[in-house]
Nucleic acid binder design. Structure first.
Lengths: 223, 223
DNA sequence: ACTGTGTCTGTAACACTGTTACAGACCGCC
DNA sequence: GGCGGTCTGTAACAGTGTTACAGACACAGT
């Protein structure tokens, strides 16, 4: 079990291009970052590496496997950020915001992960840092797992909201148009607020703080 | 503007199969519900209706338009559930859980919406009900919009977690395997809790309550 | 040195996808 | 009758993931 990334560094016998599985995954990740998730095609990637498509398949298996490997790789790269903060709550919040901001900064890969249903894979390595902070804050066992998952729910939801592309669906279905023409019984001020573009970063921070405060014990004084 | 669903009921002249745009969307929705998002193919849908593919394109435009119409239709169907509850907070919470449960019950369409980035479209009609409850609870303007979006973040994140299919990615990348073999400094009890399958319905309820309590004014006495 | 054997790699194809050009059938209308 | 707009089928185009197959290369054995 666990036969991933167990290839010895000294060049194994019988190869012609010197391509590694890790090389292919790295090239695929780079391609997605440069030209978006839609550019990740087996033929395109093969051309990028100056190689035939079967070579890709020989090294990585299927496209789903390739995407999973890309997401895992990105997850590991994201996990290297340090966490700072004074109180336990602050540190947990900072770790969660690291996850969110890291995913936003590499939105191409985050979109890819979402489309393929591997978003939880992308966040996994950062969960570890979050769990460490949660345990430092005094949580353990099921309570810690619950807190972690609540936070992940908020981060994931925020990402979906932040990465959605309004221009993708037809004019009549855009959020502001829907609200402007809706027959719902809403105050005009509220309707205007709903039509406006939300500040998702601030929204994420507020929602996260509510959830963190709810799960993590600590000073109840702050507003 | 707003030229959607403005086709008169009496059969328009010049047709042969009597197919309506609404009929096609309904058939597509039914197909997705019965056989999953992957079964939604233009040829498959055409065969289902005993028709050629260009007929579909003639009526609905592109596949993206079709998906958007499906999601909007489902959204309207979901919006018919009544909301009950004693306090304002309870009613808001109940409305949010309606959104969540409705999406879970029709997970095929919810998955389709997620893959195509139209999840916010699916939830839109239910937002209206939620906003009504929020305004009843005393929120208006930006505060109301913020509360709504925080709640939507939680619902969306919960759906992503609930609908992810662990069997989709390779064995070594499943959540429990990752945690079991992780080198993170975590208590054994916490590790066990992280490997276990989460009760997402309960998780959603807890997280929602935290967010609702944070945004909606009301009795602070309950635990 | 000759022959394997296992590790890669390219050519070419298969089955499938969304999409469209085009020709034609049908309807109401003049 | 003919005209024109509303559909509808046939057939194709370009592109996708994937694989069967044949070959080239490096090393091991004799």
């Amino acid at each position: 079990m666990g036969k991933i990334a167990t290839k010895p560094s000294p060049a194994p016998p019988g190869r012609r291009t010197g391509l590694d599985r890790a090389d292919i995954v790295a090239a695929a990740l780079d391609l997605v970052v440069r030209e978006g998730p839609a550019a990740l095609t087996m033929r395109r990637l093969a051309a990028e590496l100056d190689v035939g498509t079967p070579t890709i398949y020989w090294h990585v298996g299927s496209r789903d496997d390739l995407v999973a490997a890309i997401v895992r790789t990105q997850s590991e790269r994201l996990a290297e950020r340090p966490v700072e903060g004074a109180t336990a709550r602050d540190r947990v919040l900072a770790a969660a915001l690291h996850i969110y901001r890291g995913a936003i900064e590499h939105r191409a890969i985050t979109s890819l992960a979402h489309q393929t249903g591997t978003a939880s894979l992308l966040l996994h390595d950062l969960e570890a840092a979050l769990v460490a902070e949660l345990e430092d804050a005094g949580l353990a066992g099921a309570a810690c797992a619950d807190a972690l998952r609540s936070i992940l729910v908020v981060v994931t939801g925020s990402l979906v909201l932040a990465l959605r592309d309004q221009s993708r669906f037809p004019e009549d279905y855009r959020a502001d148009v829907l609200w402007a023409g809706s027959a719902a019984p809403v105050t005009s001020g509220t309707r205007a607020a709903l039509c406006a573009e939300p500040d998702i970063d601030a929204l994420t921070a507020v929602t996260l703080r509510a959830v963190v405060d709810h799960h993590v014990p600590g000073g109840e004084g702050a507003a």
